[in-house]
């Protein structure tokens, strides 16, 4: 019972005047708690997101998504949770990124990165975009919140104009609460919470699905690498929470299947080399007059990625989840 109580305390500090939201939060946490208590893992009243057949999910965000491409804990969990529907994933996380796409530009201003993302989304054609931002901007605190939200809205508009995708907004993961070990994070817990609630409000205003990962993660003690990024061991425990934040469920036993995870990791490596190839400046940038001829190799990763995905889907080809 301690967990939601603490959450409510911090909530009431964040939104002292916003009673309706407070009530909603209270309700939501009670539901989550009830679901936990009765061990209800397979049914959830209203799933935040449901995978359709042949769904292509883009994970868009910062370091939090990007780091999963190594161990693929989250992606494996989501793959299992949507088994049989041939859902594919594209990890577009980029370290240190913000809704302004500050990490995605090369020699130009952030706008160049924003435009590049737009082009990539147009090429990838995701049917769902799962967005997780806020961990970087939360360091700017309340002062930076308005600009963060404005950039976020602009990004949402771009995604809607570029794709037909469903959009799910995730609240950012918490920073470590061990402020003795990481003294510079003293203000972070409150600031992450502030950004999480602001994103929730944004989702409501934009009529978008909201996955409150922050609420599910914040009361646990995480090892973390440096107080703000997570270890691969952390990711294994985060993965089921991501699934749950979407209102989905998995049988944890299925995650123990190492070959599936390895295939996904191999696919992720191929995709990383496809969308963020090394030597960008020679292949496509200002020195392409020298090595641009080798740019033809990059699309050659596509069939290799498809091969790995066929392998992923085939691992679910059993009577319970018919392969279509």
């Amino acid at each position: 019972m301690k967990v939601p109580a603490r959450a409510l305390r911090s909530m009431s500090m964040e939104h002292p005047h916003n009673i309706p939201i407070l009530i909603l939060h209270r309700m939501r946490h009670l539901f989550a708690l009830l679901a936990l208590l009765i061990g209800c893992q397979t049914t959830q009243a209203v799933p935040v997101w449901e995978a359709k057949e042949n769904e292509l999910v883009a994970l868009l965000g910062d370091t939090f998504w990007e780091r999963d491409y190594h161990g693929a804990a989250i992606e494996t969990a989501l793959t299992v949770a949507t088994a049989g529907k041939k859902v594919r994933f594209r990890n577009l996380g980029w370290s240190g990124d913000t809704p302004r796409c500050e990490s995605r530009s090369y020699f130009g201003p952030p706008r160049e990165g924003f435009d590049r993302l737009k082009q990539q989304l147009a090429e990838i054609k995701p049917t769902t975009v799962m967005i997780c931002y806020g961990a970087v901007d939360s360091f700017t605190g309340e002062a930076g919140l308005a600009s963060f939200l404005q950039a976020y809205r602009e990004m949402l508009q771009m995604i809607r104009e570029t794709t037909q995708a469903n959009i799910v907004l995730f609240s950012p993961p918490p920073a470590s609460r061990d402020t003795k070990r990481w003294p510079s994070l003293a203000a972070q817990s409150a600031q992450r919470e502030m950004y999480a609630r602001a994103i929730e409000k944004l989702a409501t205003e934009e009529k978008l699905a909201f996955a409150d990962l922050h609420a599910l993660m914040k009361d646990q003690a995480w090892s973390t690498v440096n107080g703000v990024t997570f270890t691969q061991q952390d990711y294994k425990q985060i993965a089921p929470l991501v699934v749950r934040s979407l209102g989905l469920s998995i049988d944890p036993a299925t995650l123990a299947q190492p070959s599936l995870r390895e295939t996904i990791i191999a696919k992720n490596q191929l995709f990383f080399q496809r969308w963020r190839p090394q030597n960008e400046i020679y292949l496509f940038g200002s020195r392409k007059h020298e090595q641009g001829n080798n740019g033809v190799e990059i699309p050659q990763f596509d069939p290799l990625i498809a091969e790995k995905e066929a392998l992923i889907f085939s691992s679910f080809a059993n009577p319970n989840t018919p392969d279509q």
């Binding site: 190594h70 980029w94 370290s95 690498v225 990024t229 960008e280």
Partner: peptide
């Protein structure tokens, strides 16, 4: 363990 990430690879 990845300690830091986000270094560019343009070249």
């Amino acid at each position: 363990e990845v300690l830091l990430s986000g270094f560019g690879t343009e070249d």
